[in-house]
């Protein structure tokens, strides 16, 4: 299987406005294969978002290298952010259309197709302020897929959504990734979310973020509400949790 992104010993240091040196990411090596969803789980502030920005090409690594490969055409990412980050001055339709405008794609067929897939027909002309939180997340997800990117980067996509809506959105997102045969990289601190959506999970340490373990998720491709009570689901979540607790204990020990 071909890889979409390969990171080799990637590190990122930067200096804050106040002159403090921050070592955000340390020595990260990983690859994402075409068609798979990889989850990265780690505590808040462990450099997960930085990692996504490095892959997106918005920031450059201080050390190491990133190889981006695109099957036929340019490597381009789709981005889903923590808070949906919609343009409040654009309608649902125009928000989803945005990436097509920027990459200058004339064919807008994908916009209608995605509005249909996320179940937002009839809301095309609504503004974000008129939508519920869950609907705003759906629109931001559609925006990430519309230009058929090489990889979808998701940064804590459902933070701040109530538990039931979150589970429904996770199921929808999983279905969307499968239907569109997308490749995805999910960054989250929500263990269940990572297990539910991923084929493999990397556990990241606190800052400077480094990958400390890879945990495979042996679940069927088609996942729904019942997946959450599957033994393999519970086992994988347990392994991730154990590793995170171990890291947490080490940090507490180091601090005392």
């Amino acid at each position: 299987m071909a890889s979409v992104v390969v990171l080799e010993n990637v590190g990122k240091r930067y200096t804050t406005v106040k002159g403090k040196e921050i070592h955000a990411v340390k020595d990260v090596s990983l690859s994402v294969q075409t068609g798979e969803t990889v989850g990265i789980v780690g505590p808040s502030g462990c450099g997960k978002s930085t990692l996504l920005r490095l892959i997106a090409g918005v920031e450059r690594p201080s050390s190491g290298s990133i190889h981006r490969e695109a099957a036929g055409g340019h490597f381009i990412v789709g981005y889903v952010f923590q808070d949906s980050s919609l343009m409040r001055w654009r309608t649902v339709y125009d928000n989803i259309k945005l990436p097509l405008e920027v990459v200058k794609k004339r064919d807008l067929g994908n916009v209608d197709r995605l509005i249909d897939l996320i179940g937002m027909k009839g809301f095309e002309r609504s503004y974000p302020i008129e939508l519920s939180g869950g609907m705003q997340r759906r629109v931001s997800i559609a925006r990430a897929f519309v230009h058929e990117p090489s990889i979808i980067l998701m940064d804590e996509p459902f933070t701040g959504v109530d538990e039931l809506t979150k589970e429904a959105l996770q199921t929808e997102l999983g279905n969307l990734i499968r239907t569109l045969r997308a490749t995805a990289l999910l960054v989250t601190h929500d263990i269940e979310e990572a297990v539910f959506l991923s084929d493999r999970i990397f556990v990241m340490s606190p800052r400077p973020g480094a990958i400390v373990e890879e945990i495979p998720v042996n679940l069927p491709a088609v996942r729904d509400a019942s997946t959450r009570s599957n033994l393999e689901f519970v086992a994988a979540a347990g392994r991730v949790r154990a590793k995170l607790l171990e890291l947490h204990a080490m940090r507490v020990e180091a601090a005392t």
Binding site: G57, M87, P99
Partner: peptide
């Protein structure tokens, strides 16, 4: 995030300004 989004799509300063 909107700036990151547009930068990730290779948008220039002018596009970011107007959009």
């Amino acid at each position: 995030n909107l700036i990151y989004l547009l930068q990730s799509l290779r948008a220039g300063q002018a596009t970011i300004f107007f959009k």
